[in-house]
C-alpha cells in the first residue's frame, strides 16, 4: 500500500515537470502548427543556466536558500526566454511561409546546434549542483511509510503556480487575447491589427520560460544534468502534449501528469525495462480511440 502511494507521489512530481515542458510544445503547435523539436534542448540550456546562476550566487557569497532560488529563477527565465526568442527569429521566422516539414527540419537542426554548442562551450562532462534543500515529510502507513521531500513539494507548488500564472495570462491579459486570436486565425488576427509575428515570438518566449521553470526545478531536485538531457525529457513532454491534446493548455498538464503517473506505476509495479514501451503504447492506444488526444478538439472533417 505504502509503495503504491509512494509511486503515485513519484509519478505526480515527474508528471508535473513533463507538463511544464509540454506547455512549450503545445503552445507553439497551437499557434503555428509546428513541432518545436528544439524545445527539449531549450530545457537543457536552462539546466546549465541554473547551475551557472547558483555558482555565481555562491561566488558572491549569497547563502540564503530563498534568495538563491528566487534569483536563479529570474535569471534562468530571462536568459532562456531570450533563447526562445532568438531561436524563433533565426531558425523559424524565415520559414514562416514554407511547408511545415521544412520548419520541422530546421527545428531538428536547431536541436543539434543547441546540444553541440553547449557541449563545446561547457565540455561534455556530467554536471551537477550542490544539494540545496534537504529533508522530507514522512507519513507512516501501517508498517511502511510514504515520504515526500521538501524539494518535491516545492516542485509541485511551483509547477502549479506556474500553470496558474500562465492560465491567467492567456485568459485575462491583452497578450493572452492576442495569442488566442492568432491561434484561431492568424490572417484574420493580423487584419485586425495584431502584430502576429510579435505574438508568435512571445509564445516562444513563454514556452521557453516554462521550460526554464521546469529546468530550474528539476536541476535543483536531481542535481545532475548533461548536454543530452533535453532529448529524452523532450520526447516525453511532447508525448504528454499529444496525449492531452496538442494545442490545449490544460491538456498539456493533464497529459504530463498521466504520463508521469503511468510511468511510475508501471516501472514500480511491473517492470522498469518496459516502462517506455508502456508509455508509447499507451499513447498509441489513446490516439487510436481518441485521435485528437484527451482534451483536444476533434478536427471537423467533411467529405
Amino acid at each position: 500500500m505504502d509503495i503504491v502511494l509512494q509511486q503515485l507521489v513519484n509519478g505526480l512530481t515527474l508528471g508535473s515537470v513533463y507538463g511544464l515542458i509540454a506547455i512549450g510544445y503545445t503552445m507553439v503547435y497551437g499557434i503555428i502548427g509546428m513541432i518545436n523539436f528544439a524545445h527539449g534542448d531549450v530545457y537543457m540550456v536552462s539546466s546549465y543556466l541554473t547551475a551557472i546562476a547558483i555558482a555565481l550566487f555562491s561566488f558572491f557569497g549569497l547563502e540564503s536558500f530563498p534568495i538563491i532560488i528566487f534569483g536563479t529563477l529570474i535569471f534562468t527565465i530571462i536568459v532562456t526566454g531570450a533563447y526562445g526568442w532568438v531561436i524563433e527569429r533565426v531558425a523559424y521566422r524565415p520559414l514562416r511561409n514554407s511547408s511545415r516539414l521544412s520548419v520541422l527540419i530546421s527545428a531538428i537542426g536547431m536541436s543539434l546546434i543547441l546540444q553541440n554548442y553547449v557541449q563545446i562551450s561547457q565540455g561534455a562532462r556530467q554536471q551537477g549542483i550542490p544539494t540545496m534543500l534537504t529533508g522530507a515529510i514522512r507519513f507512516d502507513i501501517g508498517d511502511g511509510f510514504v515520504q515526500i521531500t521538501y524539494m518535491k513539494l516545492f516542485i509541485l507548488f511551483a509547477a502549479f503556480l506556474g500553470m496558474g500564472v500562465l492560465t491567467y495570462i492567456i485568459q485575462k491579459t491583452k497578450l493572452g487575447r492576442m495569442c488566442r486570436a492568432t491561434q484561431q486565425d492568424r490572417k484574420m488576427a493580423s487584419i485586425l491589427g495584431i502584430n502576429t509575428d510579435r505574438v508568435i515570438s512571445s509564445v516562444f518566449v513563454i514556452g521557453a520560460a516554462m521550460a526554464a521553470l521546469a529546468g530550474v526545478l528539476v536541476t535543483l531536485d536531481y542535481g545532475a544534468f548533461d548536454f543530452y538531457v533535453g532529448f529524452i525529457i523532450g520526447i516525453k513532454a511532447f508525448t504528454a502534449a499529444v496525449l492531452g491534446g496538442i494545442g490545449s493548455l490544460p491538456g498539456a498538464m493533464l497529459g504530463g501528469v498521466i504520463l508521469g503517473l503511468s510511468e511510475a506505476l508501471f516501472a514500480g509495479l511491473i517492470s522498469s525495462d518496459y516502462k517506455d514501451v508502456f508509455s508509447f503504447s499507451l499513447l498509441v492506444i489513446i490516439l487510436i480511440f481518441r485521435p485528437s488526444g484527451l482534451l483536444g478538439k476533434p478536427e471537423v472533417e467533411k467529405v
Partner: peptide, 27 residues
C-alpha cells in the same frame, strides 16, 4: 490503425512505434 489520424498525430504515433521497436530490441 493509425491512418485515420491526421498529420502530426500520425507523426507522434509513428515516433512511438519506432521507439517501441528499439526498446523491445534492447530489452
Amino acid at each position: 490503425p493509425v491512418l485515420r489520424m491526421h498529420g502530426d498525430y500520425l507523426a507522434i504515433v509513428t515516433l512511438g512505434f519506432g521507439e517501441i521497436i528499439r526498446l523491445v530490441l534492447t530489452n
